[in-house]
Design a protein around this nucleic acid. Sequence first.
RNA 1: GCGCCUGUAGCUCAGUUGGAUAGAGCGGCUGACUACGAAUCAGCAGGUCGGGAGUUCGAAUCUCUCCGGGCGCACCA
Length: 669
Amino acid sequence: MYLEQQEQLGDLIRGVLKQKFDLDVESIPLETPPDLNFGEVSTPIALQLARALRKAPRVIATEIVEALGKVEGFVGFEVAGAGYINARLDRGASVRAYARAEGGGGLAGGHVLVEHTSINPNKAAHIGHLRNAILGDTFVRILRAAGSKVDVQNYIDNTGVQVADVVVGFEHLEGKSVDDVRALIASCEEQVQRDGRTAGAFDYHCWDLYAKTSQWYASGTEEENAERKKKRYATLHLLEEGNNPTAEMAELISTAVLRRHLATMERLGIEYDFLPRESEILHLKFWDAAFDLLKKTGVLYFEENGKNKGCWVMTRPGDETKAAEAEGPNEDAKVIVRSNGTVTYVGKDIAYHLWKFGLLGKDFGYKKFFEYPSHECWISTMSGAAEHPHFGGANAIYNVIDARQADPQANVIQALRGMGHTEQADRYTHFSYEMVALTPRCAVDLGYAVSEEDQKKAYIEVSGRKGFGVKADDLIDKLIAAEFEEVSKRHEDLDAETRKKIATQIAVGALRYFMLKYTRNSVIAFDFKDALSFEGETGPYIQYAIVRIRNIFRKGATTADAVLDEFAQMADAGKYLEGAENADIWALWLAAGRRTQVLDQCIVTSEPAYLAKHAFQLAQLFSNFYHNHHILAETDGEKKKFLLATAAVTLRELVLALNWLGIESPEAM
RNA sequence: GCGCCUGUAGCUCAGUUGGAUAGAGCGGCUGACUACGAAUCAGCAGGUCGGGAGUUCGAAUCUCUCCGGGCGCACCA
């Protein structure tokens, strides 16, 4: 494919530079010219070498081109502009190769662990969580396409303060017992089963209760609030301890909400392999093992003086020299073990990440938790099934966690590095992304009270604590409803079930594309108008291109596979790719040939948005081609075969790309 | 105060390791359905890439500085 052709040119030029100038150039910069008139591959290498060789760039470029001579796969090379070397591909040969190039990427490998979603199991998922899960799931698909073995983990903080808050709500605001909560969960579950609606589900109930409880902590007199906060921490303590009715209630709540989250994500095609829980990290004493290792390697030290007196602390990344030069205690150090002996969040995270890399010397117990059509999802437990898959011990990890947690993530990496696990530290990627916020207008439309100050902002952060945000299931429902109406208008002939299926495929496509078209570090200011759009740069636009291609094959009474088989027997197709009137066809093939390059770029930069962009561009080029060339009406038999092959390759590439984006390709829409 | 991110068309965003004429969608205005589906396509208008200085053959991209946004900097998670 295109990537290989680029690399081929790079190797050739490297060889020329060695032979002619005795230069060892590590990597030849290769780019795509801005215009097809400049060829398909170009390099400014001569411009870069001008100084070292004390020659004019154009002279160097000319010498390289002369030394290259004739090369198979290329029609020729030329010098342009200030000293670019432009290469023209052999179009006939390229098209032949692209048509044959099935499969994925095959550039990555190894055992990779991706952690994503990780929603506190105390409330319904909202749009911010959707961005996390969709980014993570898409990246997993990309890694798998490139040949890596990937385990997907969803970390469950079931003993944290957020779950404690909902427990406080049930116990002290609603006066419910463990049995009451159990009954409520059962009746909510029954309602979801019966009505197929998510609005009355248990996670929705918790959404409201969590907001109510958060407010309750601050809404009484000073003494009352102090008393309420005490209840909060007492509850948290009971959760961490386990084996008591409060912890039992927490377990019920967190498990029920977790099941809701898995159901929500499954609507979007998002699945997990393993659900490690904080309760097991605590009770299996992961921290004790990590603490020993951290002390032994000197990463942690006991602070005798200053504000952190009595704590075990570590130096923050970047502060090493400052810490060494400081005379007194390093007040900026990160506390890992508090003076009361309890461990902080970063400490627990270090232990967990040692496990991920197989460096802790301990493992979870495992039991089956959730069944997907194609595989099981396991959850951590104290002592579980005798036979289970092996999780952890990966050689690279990706943590899909929002950008605000950059500092604690850096601390964990720093700890690994300090312990001498530099290779693992280098393969630890904080896959960070910015939040999804609401535009003030959207917040007002949803009925939230928006302060004057917030009205002026470009966006307002969603907050589970305040109950402020758009719930994931509500958004999905709304998208499906809107799309169902659209599909019904266009296909009165289809039965309701089929229309519902198509509407769901398109709605999910629209949502996933919407979350993926923005690069990770751009804040998404959410607005229903944009998210509910099915035109322009959207998932449905790409799906529509696919439907059109399928219609061509249907009407032409053939299939993409048959067409490609025939094309393989054809003589040279190069003649159909020359000239200005065929520039759109060649541009389409060229884009179709970029699959491996795009996949590679996505992995190197941890950026799925490039794949989304690629799929859109491919669909766009096809739409253009579709309008310029009427395939089925083509009278030249050979040319018709070629045009059909063009559509077939486009279809194959679009379906592959959408698959990796987690978007289905409907038969009709 | 320190650190990280960020400022590109009216709006929302792309812009590969510094490279040729800065792109797309939406919105606006024109056109194109008896064609393989118009959820589409073509065209036009719209930019001192926040300001300034520097490095370079070459800067939206790198450095410095100023201005404007955002987010971190707990013995919370």
